[in-house]
Design a protein around this nucleic acid. Sequence first.
DNA 1: GTATCTGCAAAACATTTGCAATTCT
DNA 2: AGAATTGCAAATGTTTTGCAGATAC
Lengths: 135, 135
Amino acid sequence: MYTVEDIKQRLQDKGVSPSNYRIKILKYLLENKNHATVDKIYTDLKADMPTMSKTTVYNTLEIFIHNNIVQVITIEEGETRYDADTSTHGHFKCTVCGEVYDFDVTLPNIDTESLKDFEIEEKHIYYKGRCNKCK
Amino acid sequence: MYTVEDIKQRLQDKGVSPSNYRIKILKYLLENKNHATVDKIYTDLKADMPTMSKTTVYNTLEIFIHNNIVQVITIEEGETRYDADTSTHGHFKCTVCGEVYDFDVTLPNIDTESLKDFEIEEKHIYYKGRCNKCK
DNA sequence: GTATCTGCAAAACATTTGCAATTCT
DNA sequence: AGAATTGCAAATGTTTTGCAGATAC
């Protein structure tokens, strides 16, 4: 879906030099909108690139986060997920199958009294329950 | 603020037998709306009860969650927080001082096609940024 | 005296770190 | 060569687990 050139350009636009692993990892995240964990990325890419280490996945994601190329999705402990869509949108996690779905949401303006003079940098919203397949 | 009798009643109402530690831990969470981590609860209560182990804090919270006495607040990896207010409300975490603030919010029902026929059980929303003191 | 509750120590994980090895220019 | 990238192995920190000991009814 994405050419290597596309990805290279994206990385360079964000000021990140496009090494092979970085290209592969970003391509993976763009093409698999599955909110993958480090372990999933590692396992899936390992098939193609047996020499890649998990540390590289961690390092790369760290750089991506720092340069706003991916966002971190925290829904529950022990599984940090990564999303190449950095816009604010909701996530639904099915407690049965574990799948995470996106949903569009317009975040409400909050009661200004309680957070008066606060500087909001990130907004996250997630729901949990059973997806249509697991009901 | 809360008498031991109050807490006992609450626990029994939820079907949990009111042992001393359970009473103390729930009392702590009700009186300190600080979204404490296990470590904070442990450290703070340890002063009064030097014999209490961290395992007991984990065990107790597990029971509380299971019986809907507290809710889990997941904002970022490596620090699970607990809240004795089980209603749906927003949390703001200051990235400078680490403090977590509550805010009132009405979370939207999902209108779109995207989550058609999904069964929503929990709604969570959190913002991150700088609080009024750390701006 | 039987259930439940508690606590220690070890195990299990995800993530981070230090540093050496490799690669790229 | 020099700088950036990668990888191994150890360390860290949180949470879980197994089981033994203590406590409660």
